[in-house]
Write a protein that binds this DNA or RNA. Structure first.
Lengths: 239, 239
DNA sequence: ATTGCTCCTTAACTGCGGTTAAGTTTCGGG
DNA sequence: CCCGAAACTTAACCGCAGTTAAGGAGCAAT
């Protein structure tokens, strides 16, 4: 029996499997070895459930599992994960753009809606929204062939004082934070200028869309990812 | 332990249960005793699967089951069934009105989409479409409280020659028929006049929206249900 | 009344996805 | 170097929803 890129790879992936694959991608960004315990935590599921699912995914050639070390996506698994993420982000976009949900209420609902989206429906939604490229929080939507656009952005916490640019995404799922950010206009696409930063990871003073100024604490700043629009890419390496 | 209208009735009904309940309603119109074998056939499922599910539904007080006789919905089961049907028909309407599906492709897709519709999403869809009262095929959408509007209609096959009125619904799921009907304008809401009917269940000559005339065979006519708009309700009883 | 066929139910098993309880591995100190 | 805690896996369950194979009910016709 052949093993490389087995033909049983593309379809017959259960919704649960999609969830696991997407989460593995999300945690490890497709590169790192991810611990089963971490996956379990993120999916709010027991450790053993995760271990068994990982075994199943391995049997289908979607992940590599080194016991006690972690899990990593294979190329096939990567594609499947990205398609799952695509569905999820399209669902989020749909909920916000078409069904008028607020971006803070969207995550759980999208998880539910996902299960009902067939390939055909996915395409129609995509077309109806005119082929959006990001989810409401700014994360890119992978292409239909499973390619994830890369974004060159970093958290506000490492942006040098005086710099400006565009807010690219917001990396939090906390309802309260999302609502606060929406109210202050700190949403993807908005232009910012970092007026001042207090020392020792103190709060930031930031100007949004040339308008009001806001004071942002460090915790919130870490969730706001931005592009910096100077000529030279002053990469304050993060991590 | 109490038995009447147990409190575990309203939520925690699995998608599969909804499917069974809706099908039991559809077959028996909430009145008749429905055979398990028939349910099985309609849901494309084995007999034993149905029998076991019926037992579970009975334990939850949603149906009454007399072995070797059949199944009937209890009041609680009726409500649950109608809410399931509501979701299904809203989904159909949504696919046609919002996602631009043709009414002939809608049934299977709606079955899929249904699984992803939470109560909240259902409400938003409902509002977005301005609270539609029928599915694309003309069947009424039950209210949020589970009340099914009654329609006083009958198949074209029993309408007296010369009568006219409005097409109320189309009772078929066959893709080919639905496409044909759409092309000839024989859709719910259209006005018809029955010009002539050949004897011995022969074909009908029918005029649509004051325009083109069409010849309709008996099989097709049986799928077209209409309201007859004379003063006196000439009820050709269809038993 | 018995036969026999069809319809319906029960029995026994499968696979998925979840659980808790009970081992193993691994790894950082003492 | 070894020991113990934390991380991870295995074992043994459960419930849901499906299957096929086998058994009992009901009824029509001899």
């Amino acid at each position: 029996m052949p093993e490389s890129t087995s033909p049983a790879t593309f379809n017959d992936i259960s919704p649960a499997m999609r969830d696991y694959l997407a989460e593995i991608y999300r945690i490890g960004m497709g590169q790192l070895w991810v611990s089963t315990t971490l996956i379990a935590e993120q999916l709010a599921v027991s450790g053993p459930a995760t271990v068994r699912m990982v075994r199943r995914l391995q049997e289908r050639g979607l992940v590599e599992h080194l016991p006690y070390k972690g899990v990593q996506l294979t190329p096939a698994g990567m594609t499947a994960a990205l398609l799952a993420i695509r569905r999820h982000r399209l669902a989020e976009r749909f909920l916000v753009d078409v069904l008028n949900f607020g971006w803070h209420e969207v995550h759980a609902e999208a998880d539910a809606l996902q299960k009902g989206i067939s390939a055909t429906i996915e395409d129609r939604m995509d077309a109806l929204m005119n082929f959006p490229t990001t989810c409401p929080h700014g994360d890119p939507i992978p292409s239909k062939s499973g390619a994830m656009p890369q974004i060159d952005d970093r958290p506000l916490t490492v942006v040098p004082q005086g710099a400006g640019g565009i807010i690219s995404r917001v990396k939090t799922r906390e309802t309260a934070k999302l609502e606060y950010l929406a109210n202050t206009g700190l949403v993807p696409g908005a232009r910012y200028t970092l007026k001042a930063r207090a020392p020792f990871n103190g709060p930031l003073r930031i100007c949004v869309n040339g308008g009001a100024e806001h004071i942002i604490g460090n915790e919130l700043a870490a969730a706001i990812w931005v592009q910096v629009d100077t000529g030279k890419s002053e990469t304050a390496r993060h991590d």
